[in-house]
Computed example of a mutant assay.
Amino acid sequence: MTTELKPRYLNNSTIQQVLAEAAAGVALRSVTKKYGAVTAVENLTLDIAAGTYCCLLGPSGCGKTTALRMVAGHENITSGDVLIGNRRVNDIPAAKRNTAMMFQSYALFPHKTIWENVEFGLKMRKLKESDLQTRVGEMLELVGLSHVAQRKPTMLSGGQQQRIALARALVTRPQVLMLDEPLSALDENLRVRMRTELRKIQKQFGMTFIQVTHHVEEAFSLSDQIVVMSHGRIDQVATPEELFDTPASQFVAKFMGDNNIFTGKVVKSISDSSLDLIQLEVAGVGSIFCRGHAVAVGTEAACSIRPDLMFIAPYAQIPAKSSLSANEISARITAVEMTGYVTRVSLMLEATGQELLYKVRTEDWRINDLQEGQLAILSWSKDNCIFLAY
C-alpha cells in the first residue's frame, strides 16, 4: 500500500540557510549543440529568473533534454554560453556547478539503503559526519519517508522512490535543480499528487527548478514559465496563462491540443486599439476575423479558436447557407464523447473535410437537441480568435 504523501516542513533557520544558497538564475546565450552533421539545439537564447519553476515543453526529439543536460554540464555545448547566476559555466564540470539532476529513472542505488542513497552526494563532498546526519534526516523528514530510511529502493513504491530521488537531489542544496521527465513513470493519480508536492517544495525553498516534460497539463500546473520547443528551437516563452490564451504559432496551438486552426490568406488588417483586427479568407469557409498584430495583406497565415470558446446551434435555425456571417460555419457532428464534466463534440466541415472540436459542460450539452450525424452551426467571437504566423 502506498504511503500517503505528507511532506514535512523544516524549521525557519534551515529554510533560510537553504534559500541563501539556492537562488540562482540561468541564462543561455546563442547556445547550439551539434552531433556531427545533426543539430540538436540551435541558437537557443533564454533567461530563467532565480526562484522560477520553468518547464521545457515539447515533443520527443525537440531538443529539450539536450538543453537541460547542457545546463547541468552533462553535455558540452558546440557554441554559445551557459550562465548560472553571473558565472559562465561552459568549461566547469557538472560536479562543480552547484546544480543537481533528478533523472526519469530515479537512478537510485539498489544495493544501498534509502539513507545511504540520500547521503551519497554529501559523502562525495566530504561533509563532516554531524552535518551529514542532520541534513539527511531533514530531507527524509521533508519527503515524509524517515520511517523507511533503512530499506532498499526495491522495497518502496514508485511514488516513494520518486520522493527519495528528490531528497537526494535537494540534500546538496543546489542552486538549480533539473528534472528530466520525473513523473512519467507514475500512474495518473500519483502523478497529479506528486506534481503538487514538487510545486510545494519548490515554493518552500525558493529554488530554481527546470523540468523537461512533454505533458501539457503537467507544464501548466507546475510552471511559472513555459518554454515550448520544436526542432531544436524555441517557439514561445510564456506564462501558462499567456500560452493558453495566446499561442504564438501554429505549432504551439497544435501542440497545446484541441485548438481549431484555420489557414488562409490575409485580405484586410484594420488597426483597432493595441491589437489589429485581421480578416482571413479561408477556402471552403469564407471570412474569419481574428485578433493579432498588423500583417501585410496577401500573407499566408492562420488563426486559432479554442473549442470551449465556440457556440453551437442546430443548422435549422439558419434558414439558408448564404446567411452565414463571418466566424460562423456549418459542420456535421461525427462523434459525441462524454468524458465526465466535459463533453467533446467532433465535427467535420463538409466542404473541406477538416475535423473540428467543440467542448462544453456535460450538463449544458444534455439540454440541447443536437445528435451525432446532425448538421450544426459553429460560431465564435473575433475577440477569442487568435492570429497565428503561418
Rank of each mutant, 00 (worst) to 15 (best):
Q225L: 15
A100R: 02
T2E: 15
I114N: 04
L179N: 06
D91W: 04
V71P: 00
G264W: 00
A376D: 04
Y9C: 06
D276L: 03
A313P: 00
T32H: 04
E218L: 03
F262H: 05
R29C: 04
P153A: 11
N11I: 10
R191H: 07
T52R: 14
N368D: 13
L177F: 00
S221V: 12
K254D: 14
A149F: 06
Q17C: 13
E119S: 14
K200F: 03
N43K: 12
D364T: 13
S30V: 04
M256P: 00
D131N: 13
K265L: 09
Q225T: 12
Y315S: 14
S346I: 00
N76D: 10
E21P: 00
I278K: 01
K152N: 08
R193N: 12
I333N: 01
G257D: 10
P110V: 13
H111E: 10
A296M: 02
T134G: 02
Q16D: 15
T334L: 08
G284W: 04
A165K: 07
E328A: 13
D131G: 05
N327W: 05
L357P: 00
K96A: 13
A331V: 10
Q374T: 09
L145E: 06
I15L: 13
A320W: 01
A219F: 01
M124D: 03
M348N: 06
A169M: 08
L222R: 01
E242L: 14
A294L: 09
L370W: 07
L183Y: 03
K33A: 01
G137E: 12
D81L: 11
Q16I: 11
H215D: 15
L132N: 06
S184T: 03
E337S: 13
I278D: 00
L356D: 02
T299H: 01
Q225P: 00
A238E: 11
A331G: 10
W115L: 10
Q16G: 04
E281C: 11
N43D: 15
V41M: 04
P59M: 06
G159C: 09
A165T: 09
T113G: 03
H293C: 08
F209G: 07
E141T: 08
S271Y: 10
K112G: 06
P319G: 03
P59K: 08
M194K: 01
T263K: 11
Q202P: 00
G353E: 09
G36E: 12
A40N: 05
K96S: 09
N327C: 07
G121W: 05
F220A: 07
V252M: 02
Q162N: 11
C303G: 07
M1I: 10
G292K: 09
Q133M: 13
P240M: 07
E337H: 10
I15E: 01
Q133F: 09
A238M: 08
A100I: 02
L145W: 07
Q374A: 15
L370K: 11
Q161H: 12
E4L: 14
V295M: 07
M178V: 03
Q16W: 05
S381R: 15
K33G: 03
D47H: 12
E75Y: 04
D258K: 14
V297H: 07
